[in-house]
Design a protein around this nucleic acid. Sequence first.
DNA 1: GTTAGCATGTAAGGAGTTACATGATTTT
DNA 2: AAAATCATGTAACTCCTTACATGCTAAC
Lengths: 203, 203
Amino acid sequence: MAKRSEVLEFAVLGLLQDNPMHGYELRKRLNSVLGTFRAISYGSLYPCLKDLLRRDLIEEAGPADAGAPTLSGKRAKIVYQVTAEGKEYLADLLEDSGPQAWEDDRFGVHLAFFGRTDSEVRMQILQGRRSRLEERLASLRSSMSRSRERLDTYTLQLQQHGLDSVEREVSWLRELIDNESENKSGGGASAASDPGHGQPAHR
Amino acid sequence: MAKRSEVLEFAVLGLLQDNPMHGYELRKRLNSVLGTFRAISYGSLYPCLKDLLRRDLIEEAGPADAGAPTLSGKRAKIVYQVTAEGKEYLADLLEDSGPQAWEDDRFGVHLAFFGRTDSEVRMQILQGRRSRLEERLASLRSSMSRSRERLDTYTLQLQQHGLDSVEREVSWLRELIDNESENKSGGGASAASDPGHGQPAHR
DNA sequence: GTTAGCATGTAAGGAGTTACATGATTTT
DNA sequence: AAAATCATGTAACTCCTTACATGCTAAC
């Protein structure tokens, strides 16, 4: 029970593996990484953390250095870190390049953690995403040509804008894919967080 | 109670005012008009219709011509139409150019019914929407410059793509707005459903 | 010493989807 | 007459948000 949204779980585990954090800070990071798509609230974050705890995928970090030891004996901050089991689970999620991975939400999270994703998997996800969008494009185009004439200018304009957006996303993906293949030809399993290649001629 | 999403209500009333329909057909129209944003299901459409009925904003159309009178005495299709009261209510919704009208979802519906919207109101909605997006743009840009350096290439790329999308929407809006003001200089309160003006130089 | 912001949590409820249940109509 | 698809509806469940309740810590 309590099947928390997978996407949120994924993102939380991913961020916590980068560096242990407490909930409050986690939320800010979450909103900055996934921000464009969604903003999550404490009401969904804390229950998610609770659930991850229950499943032993994360744990409270020992009070180790303990920045400011609370005056009273009570803990004010709870810093979470990913357990060994959690790391395995996360690794599985990261290496999943199946259809779910090119779902809108899911894809965003995958991309955010591409630095830690195997190059092969990255490619599969990017390509899967692209073909997913191209399907959408096709169905959009056909539904537009079917309904043309019967819709007023504004509705048409709206649909056209939607179409343009998807088209732009496809060509954005193409750039990413081209970049991938260039880098792949260069060297084998290079360092994940290599910031080497400059802006790939964006715009 | 049962505060159905307003957006759905709005869209349903708008479509039904165009031409009376039964639920099944309504759903298809809904998904084609709002399709880019959302796809609604029967599980949310039928309860919405029920609620609109209860509030006397729509009613079942008399079996008037009744395409194929069901073999048995039972009704197979239920065609809905907007009541006088419903028309008033819809008119209020259409003429609302307040902040809610430039919310993502709401804006789409407003645009879809711009054909029946007063020219002044159209302008206000378009401009409101634009400034809403420009705020978002500003906050996006500042959060990006704050987090630059600390994020890997992929995350940056994702954020940049998000930014570009919003920028494109803004310039799309600018086109629509320019178009509005050109047309306004032409004539006074012209007919709402005037399909006169040709394609406004899209792209 | 009180406002502001950090930090954690829960309960209620909103907005919708999926899956099911049912039957009429059209096509093959 | 079987299969597809049109058509209506409901119940259970998902996922998330809002609003609340609580207390610590820093700044003014």
